[in-house]
Each structure stands twice: as C-alpha cells, then as structure tokens.
Simulated assay, not measured.
Amino acid sequence: MGVSPAVRLDLRGTPCPMNFIRTRLALEKIPVGALLEVDLDRGEPEQTVAEGLRGEGHALSALPHPSDGSAVRLLITRHGG
C-alpha cells in the first residue's frame, strides 16, 4: 500500500457532530499533505464527515472497513488551504 497514515482514529460509535469535530481536530495536528485514517459507522456519520471535509477542500476516499461490515474507513489527505 502507499503512504502510511500519520494518525489513525477509530470513531465508530461516536455520534454526529462529535465525529466530524474530532476528525477536524486531528487534521489540524498533521502536516499538509499527510494522511489521516478514520473509521466511522456507515450512513449518517460517514456522509456528514465526508461531505464536510470535501467542502473544506480535503481529498478523501472511502473503503470498506476490513473487519467491520457496519463501518467504513476514510483515508483523508490534509489540504493546505
């Protein structure tokens, strides 16, 4: 696999909007261009976090969680703007 994540967060079970807030705080602590890996519940948490981060200009991709069918793994590259 490519670049290793600078930080990994497991936010499964974390309600909205706390999962988005925790993801944003983690992004602020890593360098521009670094990768953040976040595990989230599918559905509203995934949608809320992904849409919010894309709206801020961060690049991200969603992958199935490797061991939890009710979760998703977001790989987020921090934007410099």
Rank of each mutant, 00 (worst) to 15 (best):
75 L>D: 03
50 A>H: 00
59 A>H: 11
71 A>S: 15
72 V>H: 03
63 L>K: 07
27 L>T: 00
32 V>L: 02
40 L>P: 02
63 L>A: 07
7 V>C: 00
68 D>Y: 10
48 T>C: 13
45 P>F: 04
25 L>A: 11
46 E>T: 14
7 V>P: 00
25 L>C: 05
75 L>K: 09
79 H>D: 07
13 G>W: 13
32 V>N: 12
15 P>S: 09
11 L>Y: 00
39 D>M: 11
47 Q>R: 15
11 L>F: 02
12 R>Y: 07
53 L>E: 11
23 T>H: 07
31 P>T: 07
3 V>Y: 01
9 L>P: 06
73 R>K: 01
56 E>R: 15
46 E>I: 12
52 G>S: 11
67 S>L: 14
45 P>H: 04
22 R>W: 07
30 I>M: 06
34 A>V: 07
58 H>D: 10
79 H>G: 07
44 E>P: 01
12 R>N: 08
53 L>S: 05
23 T>C: 04
69 G>W: 04
31 P>L: 08
41 D>Q: 02
69 G>R: 13
69 G>E: 10
21 I>W: 09
66 P>L: 08
25 L>V: 09
65 H>E: 04
61 S>I: 13
43 G>P: 11
5 P>N: 14
42 R>D: 14
9 L>G: 05
22 R>V: 00
6 A>G: 03
49 V>P: 05
29 K>S: 15
78 R>F: 04
71 A>T: 11
69 G>L: 08
18 M>A: 14
15 P>G: 04
2 G>D: 07
36 L>W: 06
37 E>F: 05
21 I>M: 08
10 D>Y: 03
79 H>K: 03
68 D>L: 13
23 T>Q: 08
63 L>G: 00
34 A>Q: 13
22 R>Y: 09
27 L>V: 00
36 L>A: 12
74 L>Y: 03
12 R>W: 07
3 V>G: 00
32 V>W: 05
42 R>C: 14
46 E>V: 12
2 G>Y: 01
2 G>E: 08
